[in-house]
Nucleic acid binder design. Structure first.
Lengths: 221, 221
DNA sequence: CCGATTCAATCAAACGTTTGATTGCATCAT
DNA sequence: ATGATGCAATCAAACGTTTGATTGAATCGG
């Protein structure tokens, strides 16, 4: 037996395992509907571990928020524009399209996508301190960047009301397709959301985006 | 296993008061986070009334779903096209715009809007029998009608994948603006969502809709 | 050995539901 | 008319269960 070195990635700390189990519970069923006993059992540890590591159930929720910021930040990192921002409208439009594609891929195809979306939407509907973490650590930055790129793509002021709302509308479409997946699948006759279905959804969102960018660029500001 | 019968329509029945109190709780904080004691207290009645009238907490959730179907059905009734459907692309586009305006008004301006949106989104994220009620009693019909009108507006087949997804995308934008209101308000610097803010949101959604309809009509099918 | 973790056991509080009694009306037979 | 009967509705109280949190001992790794 060749002695392989300790598979570090496989050895996850109890902390990590608990966070992942918690995100699964919170994302699928919600914070109140998921008990610490469930989480501890799913993580293969004792319920006291949660108080020990996170100070309580609420602390665990905050840790989940930080975990989400890390997860989604990584998922979007490749698609986020570096400095300087894309110089011309065409490059800017393509950058935005890349962001949309990354977001669709993460939310609709990654196994953690629905959990992250569920957690975030529930936080938005009933904010706690975890929402601040997500907003300040992720959402605000992504939205501001997208607005700046949108400005290059259309020639409109990045922080204008119309641009900020237009970016929200794009994000909203994607998040909605994930959250409302049960209804979408039912109406579409889909057995679930796989690569083909995600492609179709991305197609609709991207078409809406492209049409809006072109029109905003053409019309008089 | 009891209480499928209707206990007589009085002027201000306890039943009604309980349903409204429950929708407030479920819509704001979620099903699990809202106790029957809270609901009973808010409705000014005894906790046993809930088991008596609805057979339990889950029965009350189903009753809330029926209530929502009624509420939203009424809100959309005026904007839904009669028979025959609008004959030409322009009239059809205007019908869709009217539906969007009605939905925005209801979800963003009516006091029950956020509650209904919260309830529906939570059901979509974690379906129960209440989702079936909403889907079959409201969503399916509205979506099919919108697809048919979209077909007239663009000349594309009503039940094609692209049309169905496009209609979902429009609905998604509106629902998202309501659900994510705390985040939207924060980023927009809004103190809340009143008529002026709703108008701005409707403007963005309607612009996306109009651009998509025009393009779909012009492009080769 | 010792600090860092994990554990079984336990706690008070809150949970949804059930119970038995009571009320206010109708609908009776007389 | 009247007292008796049935029924829908509401109530306070208690049910057994589950909740999040805490304790002190056991275990582990360096």
């Amino acid at each position: 037996m060749t002695a392989e070195s300790r598979p570090v990635p496989t050895v996850r700390s109890t902390r990590e395992v608990i966070i992942e189990a918690a995100l699964r519970g919170f994302g699928e069923k919600g914070f109140a509907a998921t008990s610490v006993r469930e989480i501890a059992a799913a993580a293969g540890t004792n319920i006291a571990s949660i108080s020990y590591h996170f100070g309580g159930k609420e602390g665990l929720r905050d840790a989940c928020a930080e975990h989400i910021v890390r997860l989604m930040g990584d998922a979007l990192a490749a698609a986020r524009p570096g400095e300087p921002l894309p110089p011309d409208p065409l490059a800017a439009a393509e950058t935005l399209a890349g962001l949309v594609r990354s977001l669709v891929r993460f939310l609709l195809l990654e196994p953690q996508g629905p959990l992250v979306a569920g957690f975030m939407l529930r936080e938005m509907a009933h904010p706690s301190s975890a929402l601040d973490t997500i907003y300040e650590g992720l959402f605000d930055g992504v939205h501001r960047t997208a607005c700046a790129v949108w400005a290059t793509a259309t020639g409109r002021p990045a922080e204008s009301e119309a641009v900020r709302l237009a970016v929200f509308a794009v994000i909203g479409q994607i998040l909605y397709f994930r959250i409302a997946a049960p209804v979408v699948e039912r109406r579409m006759g889909w057995p679930g959301i796989g690569p083909a279905e995600a492609e179709a959804i991305a197609g609709t969102v991207l078409r809406n985006l492209t049409l809006r960018l072109d029109a905003d660029r053409r019309d008089v500001p």
